[in-house]
């Protein structure tokens, strides 16, 4: 297996940098070799760019893939959108010589070439398949006893024939990783339903997208969870920023939203601030107290 280049994307470095920091902390703690994918751009985001112009979408994606090829590393994404764009573009280009030639005719102008020699991973898929939930569990000293609503996000799972992570109706791998920290993954109605952000809906039709978010938040709240755990900064923004937007209409949920990198960081003993929870729009003192009291007995905090 090749080493990994960390692909940042847009939303994480530019809006939720706490997730970037937490990711680097947990990769190091697990002894996973990684380096930055320097000079990368937007993946480009599947919602707008993929629907606008396939060749542009493929070409910008192939430039990012070519950067990893030059280093001979696989790509590690921490966003379902980046995962979807880069993996799908990689699959399409590996299998279609005509498109590959067309993309390379554009890349040639900047002295690059796509050859199809690297793989695209998502941190959840990588941790589950290559590290294993048991190993993650072994790295944790004190269980993170909280009740979590796990949100997979659409593009981590689908299209299932490309993702190769099992079925999309009742997936378990992410729950296993969440439960490896000692948390309980609480079942809730509509668990695999969309957060509402994708496809450019959030940017162009905020109200519509928030209806889908409300559907989810209602059911998570009803299930009595302490927090939401996601794997994508776009879902993260939709739940975190979305709660602020919904509060204006008198709907309050107060559910802290936590990317798995941050959640794992907490389980490794890093404080809520160290993993960037204070940078969320929704900050829950009650949840942070709970984490603090769990961590007090935690040897890793010495």
């Amino acid at each position: 297996m090749k080493e990994l280049s960390l692909f940042l994307g847009c939303l994480i470095p530019n809006r939720y940098p706490g997730i970037e920091k937490a990711t680097k902390l947990v990769l190091d703690r697990l002894g996973i070799k990684w380096s930055e994918l320097k000079e990368a751009s937007c993946c480009p985001a599947p919602g707008v760019f993929r629907s606008f112009d396939k060749i542009t979408w493929l070409t910008v994606a192939s430039r990012n893939l070519a950067l990893a090829e030059e280093k001979d590393t696989d790509i590690l994404t921490i966003c379902n959108g980046c995962f979807s764009s880069l993996m799908d573009a990689n699959n399409i280009l590996k299998n279609d010589a005509v498109l590959r030639d067309e993309v390379n005719s554009h890349l040639k102008k900047i002295g690059k070439e796509y050859t199809g020699t690297v793989e695209v991973r998502h941190i959840i898929d990588f941790l589950y398949k290559d590290i294993g939930a048991h190993k993650v569990r072994n790295a944790i000293e004190k269980p993170l006893e909280v009740r979590a609503a796990v949100h997979y996000g659409c593009h981590l799972l689908k299209p299932t024939k490309d993702r190769k992570l099992g079925g999309a109706e009742c997936p378990v791998f992410f729950d296993e990783l969440v439960e490896a920290t000692g948390a309980v993954s609480v079942p809730y109605e509509g668990k695999t339903s969309c957060c509402g952000a994708g496809g450019g809906v959030r940017s162009a039709m905020l109200e519509t997208s928030l209806k889908m978010t409300e559907y989810k938040l209602e059911r998570m709240k009803k299930a009595g969870v302490d927090c939401i755990v996601d794997a994508c900064p776009f879902c993260h923004l939709q739940y975190d920023g979305g709660q602020v937007e919904l509060a204006k209409a008198g709907k309050t949920y107060n559910l802290p939203v936590i990317h798995y990198s941050q959640f794992l960081g907490l389980a490794f003993g890093y404080t809520p601030e160290e993993v960037g929870l204070h940078l969320n729009a929704i900050v829950s003192p009650g949840f942070e107290e709970k984490i603090a009291s769990i961590q007090k007995g935690n040897k890793l905090l010495e």
Binding site: E20, E36, E39, S41, T59, V60, R63, I110, K112
Partner: peptide
């Protein structure tokens, strides 16, 4: 961030391919 934000030459490349397509 270690992206095109930090490397102006890399940004030029992206602009060039967006023009090319």
């Amino acid at each position: 961030p270690e992206t095109v934000h930090k490397y102006p030459e890399a940004l030029k490349e992206v602009k060039k391919i967006l023009k090319s397509t």
